[in-house]
Design a protein around this nucleic acid. Structure first.
Length: 709
DNA sequence: GAGCACTGC
């Protein structure tokens, strides 16, 4: 790879003037970061261009491009944009591309975002800037909401997950002339899958242009990944545009400078260090809000308490601090407190999880305190268990966190670790989600797109072979894949169509055969949201008592049916939810998912049928999907210890379950939560004979009433 | 008798 190239040594003033003229967002300057061929971005009296030094510059048609991005996109199959926050890349580039004619002839410019909220807000911003009605020329699609007008929409924003789903109907994405993937550096599961598939599509569709937007740190690996010159060598169209070697363009942002402060000595207790740092900032620094990054609810609640105690100890003198916690488990109303303006003379301190790193943006933050840790999910393919572990963040995350201090004016970031640690020990990038997740959903999606050799798939980062093998095993045992690891018909193909965990999808299909699909899709929807109970630490007793009104002896799944019935009966009332310690937002989502499933099943030719309160068939349907999650109460166990049938893992019923302390002999759980113990969340009592009925290939009868693996 | 970083279809 070549060195970083900058603009021609032009007079600074002329350069700035030119930038201002041709680069709409005003203060930002495009700058070519790297190019192996020695191309440079240059300026002439008629505009910016891009040229190859080796060739005669005059012969290149650079002068017709008034914007370097257009030149790059037209002439490269893949353009990688490295843009700082506030550079306008997300909103400007789609508009440039449309102006340049990339959306003509019924073609559409697709722009993906990893999050629904981002899709909505970017789409409405662009529609506003272009002076058009949202949903017409500029539209968006997210789950449960499609605001596009086919034939009219020229720029379409969507989540990367939706684009993946669209590929199931149109594997080459023929509607789109340009696909822009934003925030690719976050390396989410769906982004990684999408990038691998897009590279494959490019091989078939030479006219397709990709624009990948990423943080600087990932640009080189992205570029190397999309560099297809080697694989295409010797082919007849070698001389044709576009070039298969990606180009990288860096766009400077409008963020303010953030001064970084390190600790001189490492600390052992980052919680205490965070609290002291907040107090220090408050004493010594000018006004401006503080954002503190900690790892989870426990840490955050503890820090909030320490800061409030400190304020009380000061006695009469008011501390002037408004301390607010922030994590996704908070109710909507509590989360919204964060956005209330800070009263004059006060200083807001928001103590947050990673949610404030990417998902929520707080205006007015001038100081960031970074603990250097976050909770991360790790998957162990051997035990098939996902764990949440407090782990050090990457340099990329640390930069992202620091950047949150420079949105309104120059800020400061206090890192609760040493500079030496940052430079020498901190990893440049985090581990991609692909390498720390359960892969069943991923495998099934690729299979449905006709990717048979999944281990040989062109990954940006290859997943662990053990995880892949485990996923294939699970899908085989569910009857979703056959011996040749191909999707079975119809089960496999139907499961791939249903946008839920494959085990839940299998449960739904089995319910169809057992005649209880009406009830099962409600259960499926509830299992697909976080938790329908309100997290009420202070009023735990009341919550438990209320829960008893809905609870049934069969277990949590059947209990959820009662909650759902009550919710419908109340007219989907938020007051009813509040009164019953039920999360209103979660219930709304349950209703949406249920509706989506209803529609989808109709498309698959499945008619909903009710079992009219026969919970036995209901539990049999659950068993058909989750037979691998069966466990048995240990004989003579006094503390409610269970062992899983598959691997004799020690597990316990989670205290939030309605079967806690009931301890039926045989159970099926939906998922495990690992802390000091493995807790089973969402459990249901079963009869062991159902296991053999549902999965004779998985369980064999050893002696009466005892199944064994 | 105790605990859930964050997304997404």
């Amino acid at each position: 790879m070549g060195k970083t190239l900058l603009c021609f040594p032009l007079l600074e003033a002329r350069k700035r003037e030119a930038m201002a003229q041709f680069w709409k967002p005003g203060s930002e300057k495009p700058r070519l970061l790297d190019d192996e061929e020695g191309g440079v971005l240059f300026y002439s009296s008629s505009g910016f261009g891009y040229a190859n030094m080796e060739k005669q510059r005059q012969k290149l048609p650079v002068f017709k491009y008034r914007n370097p991005i257009l030149y790059l996109v037209e002439n490269h199959a893949t353009t990688i944009i490295v843009g700082e926050t506030g550079s306008g890349k997300t909103t400007q580039i789609p508009q440039y591309l449309k102006e340049a004619g990339w959306a003509e002839g019924g073609r559409v410019i697709a722009c993906t975002q990893p999050r629904r909220l981002a899709v909505q807000s970017v789409a409405s911003r662009v529609a506003e800037e272009m002076g058009v009605k949202l949903g017409e020329e500029v539209g968006y699609t997210i789950r449960f909401e499609d605001r596009t007008n086919p034939g009219v929409t020229a720029i379409k924003f969507l989540t990367d997950g939706v684009l993946l789903r669209e590929m199931m109907d149109d594997p080459l994405l023929t509607n789109y002339s340009v696909i822009m993937v934003d925030e690719a550096h976050e390396r989410s599961l769906s982004t990684d899958m999408l990038l691998g598939l897009l590279k494959k599509i490019q091989r078939r569709r030479h006219e397709l242009r990709l624009v990948i937007s990423s943080a600087t740190i990932e640009a080189k690996s992205m570029s190397a990944f999309f560099d297809t010159r080697k694989t295409r060598q010797g082919e007849a169209d070698e001389h044709c545009v576009p070039r298969r070697q990606p180009t990288i363009l860096s766009v400077e942002g409008r963020g303010f400078n953030v001064q970084i402060q390190y600790l001189e000595e490492p600390v052992s207790d980052y919680l205490q260090a965070a609290v002291s740092t907040v107090l220090l900032i408050h004493e010594q620094e000018p006004m401006g809000d503080i954002l503190v990054f900690l790892t989870g609810q426990d840490d955050i609640d503890a820090a909030v308490q320490l800061l409030n105690e400190d304020a009380q100890n000061r006695g009469r003198q008011p501390s002037g601090l408004i301390v607010l916690p922030l994590y996704s488990g908070l109710s909507r109303a509590d989360q919204d407190l964060i956005f209330s303006p800070t009263p004059k003379g006060k200083r807001k301190v928001v103590i947050s999880t990673n949610i404030a790193e990417t998902s929520l943006t707080l205006e007015g933050v001038v100081y960031v305190v970074d603990s250097g840790f976050s909770k991360q999910r790790f998957y162990n393919p051997i035990s098939d268990i996902e764990n949440l572990i407090v782990a050090p963040i990457s340099k990329a995350s640390a930069r992202q966190r620091a950047g949150r201090a420079g949105r309104v004016r120059p800020g400061k970031c206090y890192r609760l670790y040493t500079e030496e640690y940052f430079v020498k020990e901190m990893h440049a990038e985090g581990i991609p989600e692909m390498q720390r997740s359960n892969l069943v959903s991923c495998v099934i999606q690729l299979k449905s797109l006709g990717i048979d050799n999944i281990l040989g798939f062109d990954w940006l980062a290859s997943p662990a072979p053990e995880a892949m093998v485990r996923a294939l095993e699970v899908l085989y045992s569910l009857g979703i894949l056959d011996e040749d690891a191909k999707l079975t018909s119809p089960t496999g193909f139907q499961v791939a169509e249903i946008p839920l965990e494959p085990m839940i999808s299998k449960m739904i299909l089995s319910a169809n055969l057992l005649g209880c699909s009406e009830e099962i899709i409600t259960i499926a929807a509830v299992l697909s949201v976080q938790s329908i109970w309100m997290s009420a630490r202070g009023s735990q007793k009341e919550l438990d008592e209320t829960k008893l009104c809905f609870a049934v002896a069969e277990g949590d799944h059947v209990t959820y049916l009662n909650v759902y019935k009550g919710f419908l009966h109340s007219g989907k009332s938020s007051q009813w939810c509040h009164k019953n310690f039920i999360n209103y937002q979660a219930m709304k989502k349950v209703v949406e998912i249920r509706e989506q499933l209803h529609k989808l099943l109709r498309r698959l030719g499945i008619v909903l049928k009710s079992c009219d309160g026969d919970t036995k068939v209901l539990r049999k349907a659950i068993t058909a999907g989750f037979f691998a999650h069966a466990c048995r109460l240990e004989a003579f166990s006094h503390n409610g210890m269970y062992k899983t049938l598959r691997s004799s893992q020690e597990v316990y019923i989670h205290p939030s379950s309605v079967l806690f302390r009931v301890n039926p002999k045989w159970l099926i759980y939906h998922s495990l939560v690992s802390t000091d113990r493995q807790y089973m969340r969402n459990v249901i009592a079963i009869d062991p004979s159902w296991l053999i009925e549902a999965a004779p290939h998985f369980y064999q009868l050893q002696k009466p009433n005892t199944a064994t693996y």
